[in-house]
Design a protein around this nucleic acid. Structure first.
Lengths: 368, 368
DNA sequence: TACGTGCGTGAATCAGACA
DNA sequence: CTGTCTGATTCACGCACGT
């Protein structure tokens, strides 16, 4: 078993294992601020007539419908409050959580997330391409489920691999509605009788997008309602570490076997497109220091309307303004801000050369 | 003014009028159990901090109206509790309600609906075909809003025109996700300055589907946050009766004028919102997410001369180039462009399988 | 008249490093 | 912690205008 030691508590994490027992107790026994991402698909089996089974297994008294309904919400809210609080304690300050649910429980989860100080980043709709039809014709086909993505706090610097998701979507930024088929066919796990091993197995495609988008390689992902281990399987494929918690032995067994058969993708395949933001910063002054630009040379604006002179300290001087490439550009355009790197060019051999090219040259040298 | 007398209270309803003032007080002054359907688009309680600019430096005209400002969740919850209770009193025993919101407020509304004994029938996702992008690349494009449809009680015999909706959807059962454009163009109401008359005007297509689906001709529809009167306009077109409540005089004036110009049974309005038939775009990344291709697998070019490896984000990596299936294909062929779908194949059981086949498979699923 | 181009804009909880 | 400064970031439409 691979473990990670948490700096704060010096307690090791049971990485890539499935813990048994009650998820709240199990979470409370793990070190605080040790988890990068939590993915949670909690049970929402209330309001189902006939077999009313509460999350805490308490007995439901035979009483009138209204009281019963109110009581079951109360019990469900308590359960939600407790597992979310336990989850929140585990998250690193910059950690985030995904929860998934349907209209039976997702409003209660969303409200409680907000109450506890999580900061909702998006609600994401999983739009099922092959939902179960509504057989009675009394309602709309229930063709989606809702996920909520939230940072631990309002100021958490959550992970969002914008460029990778954009690449997944053929160059267009990823939207909050995802079209993904429900889990069936070969991916759907069966028990020894050939019946489905779990009633609500989530598709790996869903978890793939969640993890590519909101974790990095090596991150620790916790799933407190592990079921048959979709979270663990995808985490392993993608080079993330997982911790699962699952109460039912039958599910744990299926999940263990499933994950053992998963192969991790090649290192090269796991590299994803990265944002320009993660490139090292290059001060404009370096272009002057390195002699790429000479003090006194003139820069021309993108639209050709403005020019400014380079000074020895890497600032510019225009007709009525001195300052950085960004400040001068913003002032000349009357804009709130300006990216000087893409705004200014210089004339070389009669041609306009964007200064951005010089920056890229310096960055290429830095990588060597 | 057309009025209807309520059997129970013998008080007449102010049909097809817009009431001013506070919606809670106004609702409390109307007779109990007199309304068939309520459609409510309350303030979302957006919590916007600073200004937001587009990449071209233009400023986003944010919803910063006073009516959307609340001091805390506690204050917002009290507001929600009170207007929902007032609304519930007005509904006939078999009445129903629709509410619409975003992740800022919809979880709190949904939980309160359940707490008050409303019975949720569906949550319906309005998938915007043309949402505002996420300009900073920090989150998913917020491309949908959520509506909740609920009966007054668990046993309410709510109206659901199954066949009409099926007909609207080309003979296929209507799903819980509706693709409808945001309201702009000629439908978007302007004030005397040519600015939008209301920051959050809803499209008539949305209300059209709501009313066709969950009311009958002659039903009374109440909208306590009437705004510029989309609910009233569509109700009139479809031969339903409406009651609007709106606090802002400017909105009431626009709504009055708008509704006066509406003709009943406008044929054009009945035809909106039927889905367009064009082949949907399939991002190559979906083949990876869905496990049809495995990150690290190799693709082979049409002519067999080149190969490239698939990465987890749906981009390819070749000998000296990374990018989309199209970009890498074009680079390897020295061509200005390349259709990666027809260019690349994969080896399966010793045979070359064009990736185009996988795309066709996904499209077939999407047509369901 | 038909078509192509450019511009405006939409319910948005939209930055991060460094001093 | 606060203030300052760098510099990254957009998709689908409708409409006006020009050829």
């Amino acid at each position: 078993m691979k473990t990670k030691t948490n700096a704060k508590s010096a307690v090791s994490l049971p990485l890539n294992t499935i813990l048994d027992g009650d998820c709240i107790e199990r979470m409370n026994a793990l070190p605080a601020e040790s988890i990068d991402l939590i993915f949670a698909d909690p049970p929402y089996n209330l309001q189902l007539k006939g077999d009313l089974h509460r999350p805490d297994n308490s007995k439901v008294d035979a009483v009138d419908d209204h009281w019963d309904q109110f009581d079951s919400f109360k019990v469900y809210d308590k359960f939600t409050r407790e597992w979310l609080a336990a989850a929140r304690r585990l998250l690193k300050p910059n950690g985030a959580i995904w929860v998934i649910g349907s209209y039976h429980n997702v409003f209660r989860m969303g409200a409680e997330l907000q109450n506890q100080g999580f900061w909702i980043l998006n609600d994401v709709v999983w739009r099922k391409s092959n939902p179960m039809p509504n057989f009675r014709g009394k309602r709309f086909t229930n063709a989606h489920e809702t996920m909520i993505w939230a940072g631990k706090t309002e100021t958490s610097k959550y992970t969002f691999n914008y460029e990778a998701l954009k690449a997944l979507n053929e160059g267009i930024q990823m939207r909050s509605d995802w079209v993904i088929p429900i889990c069936n066919g070969g991916e759907r796990l069966k028990d020894d009788n050939g019946d489905k091993a779990h009633p609500t197995q989530k598709p790996e495609a869903l978890l793939h997008r969640v993890m590519v988008g909101s974790t990095n390689v090596g991150d620790v992902v916790l799933d407190p309602f592990f079921g048959t281990g979709t979270t663990g399987a995808v985490a392993k494929m993608l080079g993330r570490e997982f911790i699962g918690i699952e109460r039912e032995e039958a599910y744990r067994k299926v999940a263990e076997k499933r994950i053992a058969n998963v192969r991790k993708f090649d290192k090269e395949a796991l590299e994803v497109s990265v944002s320009k933001r993660s490139e090292p910063r290059v001060p404009f002054g370096q272009l002057v220091e390195r002699g790429m630009l000479r003090p006194g040379e003139e820069l021309y604006s993108l639209n050709g309307r403005h020019k400014a002179k380079v000074r020895a300290d890497g600032t510019l001087i225009g007709d009525d303004i001195k300052g950085s490439i960004h400040q001068v550009g913003a002032h000349l355009e009357g804009a709130p801000s300006c990216n000087g790197w893409t705004y200014w060019s210089i004339k070389r051999d009669g041609k306009q050369v964007p200064i951005e090219l010089f920056r890229q040259q310096i960055r290429a040298e830095m990588r060597n």
